Amino acid sequence: MRQIFLSQRQRAPLVILVCLTLLLAAALALGQWPDYAHLAASQDLLLSRIRWIIGDISEVAFYKHELPALGLLLGAALAHWAHVRGARWQGFAICYGTGLWPWLFASSMMGLLLSHALWGWTLASGLWQPTFVAFVSLPAAMVLMYGGGWRVAITGAVLGALLVTPASLLLVNYLCYPLRLPVVVGNVTGMALASAVAFLLCRCLPMGGRSSRPPSAPAVVHKPSYGPLWILRRVLADFSEAPFFGNELASLGLLAGALLAWVLAPAAPAYGSQLLPHIVAGQALASLLGVLIWRRQWIACGWYPTYIPIVSIVPAAVLTLGGDWQVVVASAVLGAVIAPPLAAAISQRLPDYMHGYIGNVLSMAISTLGILPVVGLLTGGNA
């Protein structure tokens, strides 16, 4: 009976993805595919709100569009299916080989939906709001810390909506907007502060499962060669690292969806900036440089946070300073050199009952604040 239950539970995310895909197909059949400006201005319409929620899934990569979001989830579902069956083409085992992707996805998605139910009214201001943060923060981290199960998944989702989302909202609206700071600083600082509070609370809750930080990377049966092919695969996997997937198939889905969205309507993804190619190029360069520079750390530790510039410094620099090649290269180089070791240093100093991702997001905030002005000076822009 338990085996039957597990197979049904594992099929649940696929059913959700099919429903989302059918919803998108219905929208296409109606001939409605607005650019970002139209989408942001029509949040009082049900279809626009649904698209905004789905787009939140790809928000962490600065793509903000339903196609890369659906591509990410479809690729992740395929990666999990391949991992469960031990397929050789699965790539890096999704969710670090824990097998917890269904629970991680369920908790993250519940946190996202609950956040919109509680805080979706903030979109009426007409300003961009960080409604996505619960999807890529505490809910997933709690599943990785305490294991699967509805108690953990629901607790993570509720705490994500009650703590992480309002913390990021407050910092973005009362710090970043008034001081004209990159909003990513408010997003990730809110994640870090709220998650620290949540993990402190969890010490008093009967969470069950393990209560200490899991290893940074799972044990591997076959030691990687860490050669050129591994480097390219690692760069690709970094694109889906922020939602805790870390898998090439998930990243391919994300990037394919982003490319398709840009081809169909260049002013739709990446907040209508039409800078999606520049952002993706900078992200790929930052990850490549990071993996090359910190390859010895990858070998020694099994995992290293080379993904950090992808979801913070590079896209923030491009959107703030423009898509000139100097901005792309400077932000990628400085992000690859500075952000990963800073994240590792912070994470190593966290108590065992807190997930190491808190150090990663703190590094994003500190590095973005420090690097963007330098990039502006080097390139003649204004950060």
Rank of each mutant, 00 (worst) to 15 (best):
M145G: 01
V220H: 02
R213G: 00
V18S: 14
M207V: 12
L377M: 11
N382V: 08
C301Y: 12
I346M: 12
L229A: 02
P277C: 11
V185Q: 07
V314N: 10
S312P: 12
V152T: 11
S125C: 00
G149S: 07
V133P: 10
L369V: 01
V158G: 09
A153I: 08
P130Y: 09
W33E: 03
M364T: 04
L229H: 05
V188A: 13
L285M: 03
A267G: 02
P206W: 08
L362I: 13
W89F: 01
A198P: 05
Y307E: 03
G302C: 02
L67G: 07
L372F: 12
V184C: 15
M110I: 08
V15H: 08
E66I: 10
A250D: 04
V235M: 03
V185L: 15
S115L: 13
I313L: 11
S48R: 01
L288R: 05
L118E: 08
S273F: 09
V235R: 00
V221P: 00
A343C: 09
P315Y: 03
L362K: 02
A82P: 00
L232T: 03
R203S: 06
S48L: 00
Q3S: 15
V374F: 04
P214F: 07
N360Q: 00
P373G: 09
L276P: 14
T189S: 15
E241Q: 14
M109W: 11
L254V: 10
P34C: 04
A343M: 12
E248P: 03
G148R: 03
W81N: 05
G302H: 02
W119D: 12
P224R: 01
V188D: 13
S312Y: 08
A196H: 08
P266F: 04
I53T: 08
A41G: 04
L236I: 02
W325S: 06
M142S: 14
A79N: 03
A69K: 08
P218W: 02
A267M: 04
L144Q: 10
L236Y: 05
I57G: 07
Y174V: 01
L20Q: 10
L169W: 11
L113Q: 04
A117E: 00
G356I: 14
L288S: 13
S312R: 12
M1I: 10
M145I: 01
V337E: 04
L45V: 07
G160D: 14
A219I: 04
A339C: 14
L319K: 13
A281Y: 06
T189P: 09
L254W: 06
L350F: 09
A82T: 00
L163F: 10
G156L: 11
L319Y: 13
V328I: 15
L259S: 14
W101F: 13
L169D: 13
T131A: 15
S42W: 02
L377Q: 08
M109Y: 01
G246S: 09
A192T: 15
P266S: 03
R234Y: 00
A286L: 12
E59S: 15
S225F: 04
L23F: 14
L114A: 12
P206D: 04
Q3H: 11
L104A: 09
I94N: 07
A29H: 12
L23W: 11
P224I: 01
L14S: 10
N360I: 10
A93C: 00
A134S: 15
P178K: 06
A61P: 06
P243H: 11
A344V: 11
V337T: 05
S125Y: 01
G55E: 05
P224L: 02
A300P: 14
